[in-house]
Design a protein around this nucleic acid. Sequence first.
DNA 1: AAAGTTTATTCAAACGTTTGAACTTTCGGT
DNA 2: ACCGAAAGTTCAAACGTTTGAATAAACTTT
Lengths: 353, 353
Amino acid sequence: MPKSPKSTAQSPRVRLKDVAAHAGVSVSTVSLVLNGAPRAEALAADTRERVLVAAGELGYRPNYLARSLRGKRTYSLGVLVPEISEGYTAGVMSGIEAELEPAGYTYLMVSHHSRATKLEESIRFLEDRGVEGLLVIGAELPGPVALPTVAVSGHRPIPGMTTVALNHDAAARGALAHLHDLGHRRLAVIRGYAGNVDAGDRWRAIQGAARELDLEIPPKLTVELRSRSYGESFDSEGGYREGFTIGRRLLETGEGFTALFAFNDITAIGATRAFLDAGLAVPQALSVVGFDDLGVTPFLNPRLTTVRQPLRDMGQAAARHLISHLDGGTPLGGRRLVEPQLIIRDSTGPAPG
Amino acid sequence: MPKSPKSTAQSPRVRLKDVAAHAGVSVSTVSLVLNGAPRAEALAADTRERVLVAAGELGYRPNYLARSLRGKRTYSLGVLVPEISEGYTAGVMSGIEAELEPAGYTYLMVSHHSRATKLEESIRFLEDRGVEGLLVIGAELPGPVALPTVAVSGHRPIPGMTTVALNHDAAARGALAHLHDLGHRRLAVIRGYAGNVDAGDRWRAIQGAARELDLEIPPKLTVELRSRSYGESFDSEGGYREGFTIGRRLLETGEGFTALFAFNDITAIGATRAFLDAGLAVPQALSVVGFDDLGVTPFLNPRLTTVRQPLRDMGQAAARHLISHLDGGTPLGGRRLVEPQLIIRDSTGPAPG
DNA sequence: AAAGTTTATTCAAACGTTTGAACTTTCGGT
DNA sequence: ACCGAAAGTTCAAACGTTTGAATAAACTTT
């Protein structure tokens, strides 16, 4: 005998109507007072007081569904993330949450798993649930969206959409300048997976910085990742293994190089292991720079030098832009860059020789 | 001049009424057909067809707000997590999401930051948003909740509430038996932070297993963590440092011991470092077992032996129980244990001597 | 003392659904 | 030819709010 979920003795909710009856006024009056509407100023102070007291005594709490249905505002946003379990996502989300909560917004989160069809489907899903805007993380949208949208991470410009992205130029310049200062001149690079939103921008930035600094990145020493394998995901093992084999392959090329700049920490760690296993000390024989700054990087041996993305700040900035558009009408559009930070630890050192 | 968010040319949504007009029937008919209500069977096949076509042509998509307001069901749940950026949370969430999405449920997530006041506030917040049930992760509820609730992680039994928890006995027995098999007899233990929901159960389980196996855990060699410092959080550095100092302190006691069982991986890693720095090889001089199985544990040096919690499964099980109650009336209550898995790597070895 | 104005409050429609009850039309049976 | 039932469809209320327009009462103004 299926039991209705409502069967849990749920004291019937107090409605505006109940408060009105208790205070001896009309429903409209109660609504006006409780919302602090400008019109409520015209009410007798005594009436306002009575309403407030009644609402307090009955423990009135508004029905957001009804309010939204009538009022057109839902104060809820949709957040599209690549994968909820990834460290990248978690970092950005913590910023989004920090910004949204005090602003009184809720959000619905859905993972798009980097699939275009799932992405579009999810957008419709969220629209249907009445979200007022979208926060899109780590995805390339096929085109403009009907809803106000702010994207986090590399995105080719779409009119009317703000993008919050890492300053890849600064990231590349910082890391490469550091290596250059240490005397390195020939560099291996692990490029991102082609489907990754950051891969293109980052690679261009690296090439630019290398040119500026007169660093050489031989084509034979640039490898592209075959899979996603972002940071602290639960399948980080794959990224590690890929880094490991890439590291070995780089050594086998026979090309001389003294430093490696990896697309992310996890592959950097894998490659480092390959180097160590081959008898090449890091950083004495070979320097390694990662990207992301996973929580554990400082505990590795050697502690990894890496570029930290301010993920939390990025999420926060994105959320802030969106609600300031929704609440205040600030126009959306353009790019906001956030600055990376080079964290120098023990995996980089003077070039040998 | 603040611009209304609605100003983005948003083609006015198609309502039931529009479909009705287009198909030449009443709103009720459309509703019946589109919902596949039993009553719709009584309608002429021709009419049903016309409605379906009309809905398709106009691209009708229901308004969930209106539907929920009228129908009493919102198909949304509230998820209370300790901290959105923690690996523990991310793992459980990925299971919850996997289960909820195909079932057509949405969820609102809020972090309680392990504060009781925030927890209660959040519950009210979620109730007000019309969630039909609650998934509570890593928190001790003060008492029964009006909403159907399933908890993940240790929770003293509350009537009418299901708890999905790790089988701590199995976890402790597995880890300790492994150490016992290797010849270890005197053990150091890092206990969890008192505020952690798992700390108590785990400690009791460890004591029980130690008694069974005749392993000694001298009081001087049991230390309690002072801070949370779960897994792959962004403040994991704190946990690492705490593990490091604890490791040093354990050595300073002068008490002999050959193995350490830590409350989590991050402190295990810190302690391991302290041991290595003191010239004690792991696992030759000292064995270390962690807990959680962070994504990077296999890449450490030595690779960490640890107890893996099936976080994703736990989230999935919790979500499944809740929706099967909501949809089918399955009664809630009791405890569902999930089994841990001991992952043997290189940080454990035969006891010296 | 009628007309106008201000002050305080309420009416009632609307938001987009769902659904119990009511209404027509058609039909088979007498 | 009439009745009762079956078949097909619609009415209208309800869910809990918000808000433009309307009302009533009290107070000015002339």
